[in-house]
């Protein structure tokens, strides 16, 4: 009896270990061109200008793992706050399938949202990464800040040449939430890169350097950032 029990326990633990081992991990890297982006570091920008980034934080939510458009894993109720100043926050396990079938199924597509959906935005005070103490919630007007990108460039005619992009807004017509779908290899670690240089080059920092409210500019800049999430093959 006890031998059979031990055998079943071992089998069960083995199964758990197998499931845990086969879960792919998401590693998100912020780049400046071909280099890893470092905060508080000056980079060459355009011909004769420089740029420094001091903060880069953003939410991703509704992560779904697919194989030929069929969902094999999802944590649609979970939001992750990624913060470049905290390397641990930039990587985590991708969701397992609800029926644990991911252990046997492959994946070739990743879908997620840049930001927080409207339902979560109207759901009151929430814990964890969504806690308002995380500094990603507007106070004068309800709503999560989906992304904060702050830094300094002499192109900005602002106090101390600062630029601040606080992108958010969940109400139509200015919902800044961005859906991102990326083809991914069937690897244990999925590496997603975001080239901030490509993003910032699309923004005219001379004219647009402070976006801190929901609106057309927030939606437009969020879309620029969203399209620059790419999978590292």
């Amino acid at each position: 009896m006890s031998t059979r029990f031990l055998f079943l326990c071992c089998l069960w633990l083995n199964q758990i270990a197998a499931q845990t081992n086969t879960l792919p991990r998401l590693e998100l890297k912020a780049l400046y061109g071909s280099n890893n982006l470092q905060l508080d570091t000056f980079y060459k920008f355009h011909e004769n200008d420089s740029i420094k980034f001091e903060m880069f934080r953003f939410y991703i939510s509704g992560i779904t793992l697919k194989q030929n458009s069929v969902t094999v894993g999802s944590d649609s109720n979970h939001a992750h706050l990624l913060d470049l100043s905290n390397p641990h926050s930039m990587q985590f396990a991708l969701p397992a399938s609800k029926n644990n079938s991911h252990t046997t199924k492959a994946h070739n597509q990743l879908e997620f949202y840049l930001g927080i959906d409207s339902l979560t935005n109207v759901s009151g005070a929430l814990e964890g990464d969504l806690d308002p103490t995380k500094g990603m919630y507007w106070t004068w007007q309800s709503g999560y800040i989906n992304l904060k990108l702050e830094g300094v460039s002499n192109l900005c005619n602002t106090r101390q040449h600062e630029f601040q992009f606080h992108l958010g807004g969940y109400l139509a017509p200015y919902s800044a939430l961005q859906r991102i779908v990326i083809d991914i290899p069937n690897n244990d670690t999925v590496e997603i890169n975001l080239d901030i240089k490509a993003c910032i080059e699309e923004i005219n920092l001379v004219k647009e350097n402070l976006v801190m409210t929901p609106g057309e500019a927030a939606v437009r800049i969020a879309a620029i950032i969203a399209k620059n999430f790419k999978c590292q093959p």
Binding site: S123, A125, P132, Y137, T139, W140, G143
Partner: peptide, 16 residues
């Protein structure tokens, strides 16, 4: 009506 939920209301005067 800038605040959409009673839970989040206190944040506004706290931060203003």
């Amino acid at each position: 009506g800038a605040i959409n939920h009673l839970d989040m209301q206190a944040l506004a005067p706290m931060s203003n």
